[in-house]
Simulated assay, not measured.
Amino acid sequence: MTRPVAVVTGVGPGTGSAIARHLAADGYAVAMLARNRERLAAFEKEIEHARAYPCDVTDEAQLDTVLAAVRRDLGTPAVLVHNAVGGAFGSFLDIDPKVLAANFQVNTMALLHLARRLAPAMIEAGSGAIIVTGNTSALRGRANFAGFAPTKAAQRILAEAMARELGPKGVHVAYVVIDAVIDVPWARKRYAEAPDSFFIKPAAIAGEVLHLVQQDRSAWSFNVEIRPFGEKW
């Protein structure tokens, strides 16, 4: 049988690769997109039914080339998980405005570009899923988050606009607010004294993304918040 095709952006050593693993294990052919060619090649060797496509998602020409290759190699994508993220932290007085603009391209504009290219086939099929991984910055602007939060808030609102338009056409759009520090090596090093309950596991995030992809259409979610049991909110 031909495997349904899923496109996952921002495939790195944390959430992205965990999502790719979960989708591949559940029967999908996964197109893994990220800028780091060497790391993608390593994931391709590790994850059966997943293929590497080096790509800068802010470059529309690259997106067109890569998505054409995905369709040729794997088939028409039925699922998009936009996990690529650009972030910068600092006071609004200190950050370089160009950094905010660059992060907007990764977080918000890339979602628009990807959806414009992949949603029409989902609409025609009457099914499909577009899942966006976000975080608490999509809901609130904290001090020193001026280079990041505005782009995630815009990303969530774009996803909601898409959900309201695509839902009646059979395409599920959901936004996952990850309210936690993700359990990756650099975070463990930075928060060396923190207990396990402080971190959210990439595999657990991936499990929720897979759940959203598979949700019964009589009970679709849009805003989904996930956090470890020890998180104060």
Rank of each mutant, 00 (worst) to 15 (best):
Q214G: 04
A69M: 05
R188C: 12
A88G: 07
A52D: 09
E225R: 08
G75C: 07
P77C: 10
D96I: 04
R35C: 06
L74M: 15
V81Q: 05
A6K: 06
L80F: 11
Y191F: 15
H211L: 13
A115D: 04
A6M: 06
R116Q: 07
G90C: 03
A42D: 15
Q214Y: 09
H172W: 06
V171D: 01
A129N: 06
L210S: 03
A34V: 11
E193P: 09
G10N: 05
T136I: 15
S91P: 10
L112K: 05
H82I: 05
S221R: 13
F148L: 03
V81N: 00
I200Y: 08
V85Q: 09
V177R: 04
I47A: 07
I182C: 08
N144M: 13
L33S: 01
F222W: 08
L112I: 15
A149S: 14
L74T: 13
V173N: 01
A143I: 11
H211E: 07
G90R: 02
N103I: 03
R37I: 11
E208C: 04
V70P: 15
A187T: 15
R217C: 00
V85S: 12
V106Q: 05
P168Q: 04
G134V: 03
I95M: 03
M109T: 14
G147T: 00
A102T: 03
P97N: 03
A78P: 08
I178Q: 06
Q62F: 02
V171L: 12
R188V: 13
R21H: 14
D56A: 04
A24C: 06
Y53A: 00
A163I: 00
L210R: 11
F92N: 09
F198R: 00
R190T: 15
A143R: 12
W220F: 04
A102H: 07
I95A: 01
S197N: 02
D216E: 12
D179M: 06
A84E: 00
R3K: 14
I157Y: 04
G12M: 10
P77F: 14
G230T: 05
G134Y: 08
A146R: 00
T136F: 15
A146K: 01
D26Q: 12
L166C: 09
R21C: 14
L118H: 08
I157T: 03
A42C: 08
R142D: 15
Y28N: 00
A154P: 10
T76C: 02
F199P: 03
E225K: 12
P195F: 14
D64Q: 07
V5I: 10
K98P: 01
H211T: 14
P185L: 12
A161H: 13
P13K: 12
R39I: 08
